[in-house]
Simulated scan of single mutants.
Amino acid sequence: MNEIPADALASISGDAYVREALALVPISILTLDEQGRILMANPETAVLFGYKCDALIGRPVELLVPDLQLDNLVLLRGGAFAPPGFHERTALHEFSARRNNGTEFQAEIGLKAFQFDENNVTLAFIIDRTERYELERHRRDLAHLTRVSTMGQLASSLAHELNQPLTAILSNVQAAQRFLAADPIDLAEVREILNDIVQDDYRASELIRRIRAVVKKGDLEVASLDLASIIRDVVLLVRSDAIVRGIKVTLDIEGDLPPVCGDKVQLQQVILNLLLNAFDAMNDVPPTDRVAAVTLARESDQMICIAIRDRGHGLTADKLDKIFKPFFTSKPQGLGLGLSISRTIIGMHRGRLWAENNIERGATFFVALPVGDAAGQAESR
C-alpha cells in the first residue's frame, strides 16, 4: 500500500478543530487524498462500516465503496458519469457500500473537492439509504397489490369482453373450414373470413395488452407521456364494466396538449382507480343519471388537469377530509388504499390530487400534473 505523505496526513488528521467538528456530524464523513486514500474518518463512519477509525487511515476508499473512483466520478445531467466538472458542485451518487463483515447496503454519497493547507482533498459524505430503499420497495409492492385488486373487480366484465373476439375467431375458423371443403373454393369468402379473424385477434390482443400494462410490476419508468392516450386506454379497459353497470362514459379532451413526464403504469393506476370510484358512486342512482365525465385540459401554462366527474350522491364533509387517508373506505370489500396510493403517486409526479362536490350533484376528482418532457425534466435536476 502506498504511504500517504506525512505532511498531508498531519495537516488534516491532526487539526483538532476539524476532527471535533466532524465527530459531531451524525452521518459518515471521510476525507480523501487525490488517490482516493482515506485521510480521516469520523466516528459515525466506524459505526456504519464496523471498522475502527484508525484502521481506515491510509486505506483506499474502495474498501468501503468498491465502485467509487475519484478520477472518473462525475454526475452529469440525466445521470451519466464523466470526468470534468465535479469540483463545481456537490452531487449525490448512489452506490453499493460494503461493511467490515462483508454485508452490502445502498448508500448515497456526496463529494466535494477543496484545498486544505495546500493539499487537494475530497470530502465524502456517506448516507445509509437501506431504510429508504426498503420503504420504496414496500410502496411499489403495495401499489402493485392495489392494481391487481382493482383488476380483480373487473375480472367478470373483462372475461366477457375477451370471450367475444375469441368466440368470433372460433366461428370464423369453422366457417373457413367449410368453405375450404367446398368445390370450388370461394376464395373471396375465405379472404373476408381471414380479415375478420385478424380484426378479432387484434381486439383480443389489445385487451390483454391493456390488462398486462396495468398489472405490470417493476421499477419506476419515467418517460414523456401523452395523457390523452393514457386516458383513452383506461376508458377502453373499463368499457365492458361500464356497459354492465349501465354507465355512460364521456370524454372531453383538449387538443394539442404538451406531454407530461412520469410513469405510465402508475398514472394508469390513478385514472383507473378514480374511474371505478366514479362508477361505484353511481350504483344507487337512476340509470339515466349514470354518466362519468372525463375531461383533460390545461389548468395553466405549466399544469394539465384531469377531471373525473360523477353524478352520485356526493361526499359528506367528513368524507372529504378522510377519503385520502390509508385504510379509509366506504366499500364492503375495499382495501381503503386506492386513493391514498393515488395521491402518493401524483405527489411523486409533482402534481396534486383533490376532490370537490359538484354544485348540482355528485363529486369531481381532479388530478393536476406539470407539463414537460423527460429530457426537460432531466435538465432541471
Rank of each mutant, 00 (worst) to 15 (best):
residue 227 L to Y: 02
residue 227 L to E: 00
residue 227 L to I: 06
residue 228 A to E: 12
residue 228 A to H: 05
residue 231 I to S: 03
residue 232 R to D: 08
residue 233 D to F: 04
residue 233 D to V: 02
residue 235 V to A: 07
residue 236 L to Q: 15
residue 236 L to Y: 15
residue 237 L to D: 10
residue 237 L to F: 10
residue 237 L to Q: 09
residue 237 L to M: 14
residue 240 S to N: 12
residue 244 V to R: 15
residue 244 V to Y: 12
residue 244 V to H: 13
residue 245 R to A: 11
residue 246 G to F: 09
residue 248 K to F: 10
residue 249 V to D: 06
residue 249 V to H: 12
residue 251 L to A: 06
residue 252 D to E: 12
residue 252 D to H: 08
residue 253 I to S: 01
residue 253 I to C: 07
residue 253 I to K: 05
residue 254 E to F: 00
residue 254 E to Y: 05
residue 256 D to Y: 02
residue 257 L to R: 06
residue 257 L to K: 03
residue 257 L to D: 10
residue 258 P to T: 01
residue 259 P to R: 05
residue 260 V to Y: 00
residue 261 C to I: 09
residue 261 C to R: 11
residue 261 C to V: 12
residue 262 G to R: 02
residue 262 G to C: 02
residue 263 D to L: 06
residue 264 K to H: 08
residue 264 K to V: 08
residue 264 K to N: 06
residue 264 K to D: 15
residue 264 K to P: 08
residue 265 V to D: 04
residue 268 Q to W: 07
residue 268 Q to M: 13
residue 268 Q to V: 09
residue 268 Q to Y: 01
residue 269 Q to G: 14
residue 269 Q to T: 13
residue 269 Q to Y: 04
residue 270 V to I: 14
residue 271 I to Q: 01
residue 273 N to W: 04
residue 274 L to Q: 08
residue 275 L to F: 12
residue 275 L to R: 03
residue 276 L to W: 04
residue 276 L to I: 15
residue 276 L to P: 00
residue 277 N to R: 07
residue 277 N to C: 00
residue 278 A to W: 12
residue 280 D to E: 08
residue 280 D to H: 07
residue 280 D to V: 04
residue 281 A to H: 13
residue 281 A to I: 05
residue 282 M to F: 05
residue 282 M to K: 05
residue 282 M to V: 11
residue 282 M to I: 13
residue 283 N to H: 14
residue 284 D to K: 02
residue 284 D to E: 01
residue 285 V to Y: 00
residue 286 P to D: 06
residue 287 P to R: 03
residue 287 P to L: 07
residue 287 P to W: 11
residue 287 P to M: 03
residue 289 D to V: 02
residue 290 R to G: 00
residue 290 R to T: 01
residue 290 R to Q: 07
residue 291 V to K: 11
residue 292 A to D: 06
residue 294 V to S: 07
residue 294 V to E: 06
residue 294 V to W: 09
residue 295 T to C: 07
residue 296 L to F: 08
residue 296 L to V: 08
residue 300 S to C: 02
residue 300 S to G: 10
residue 300 S to K: 07
residue 301 D to E: 15
residue 301 D to A: 14
residue 302 Q to T: 10
residue 302 Q to A: 11
residue 302 Q to D: 06
residue 303 M to T: 12
residue 305 C to Q: 14
residue 306 I to W: 14
residue 306 I to D: 03
residue 306 I to Y: 02
residue 306 I to Q: 08
residue 307 A to W: 12
residue 308 I to R: 03
residue 309 R to W: 00
residue 309 R to E: 08
residue 310 D to R: 09
residue 310 D to C: 11
residue 311 R to V: 03
residue 311 R to I: 02
residue 312 G to C: 01
residue 313 H to Q: 11
residue 313 H to W: 10
residue 317 A to P: 04
residue 317 A to N: 10
residue 318 D to F: 07
residue 319 K to V: 11
residue 320 L to D: 03
residue 320 L to Y: 08
residue 320 L to K: 15
residue 320 L to A: 11
residue 322 K to D: 09
residue 322 K to C: 13
residue 322 K to Q: 15
residue 323 I to Y: 10
residue 323 I to L: 14
residue 324 F to S: 11
residue 324 F to R: 13
residue 326 P to C: 01
residue 326 P to Q: 00
residue 328 F to N: 13
residue 328 F to T: 12
residue 328 F to I: 13
residue 329 T to C: 03
residue 329 T to F: 05
residue 329 T to G: 04
residue 331 K to C: 01
residue 332 P to S: 13
residue 332 P to Y: 13
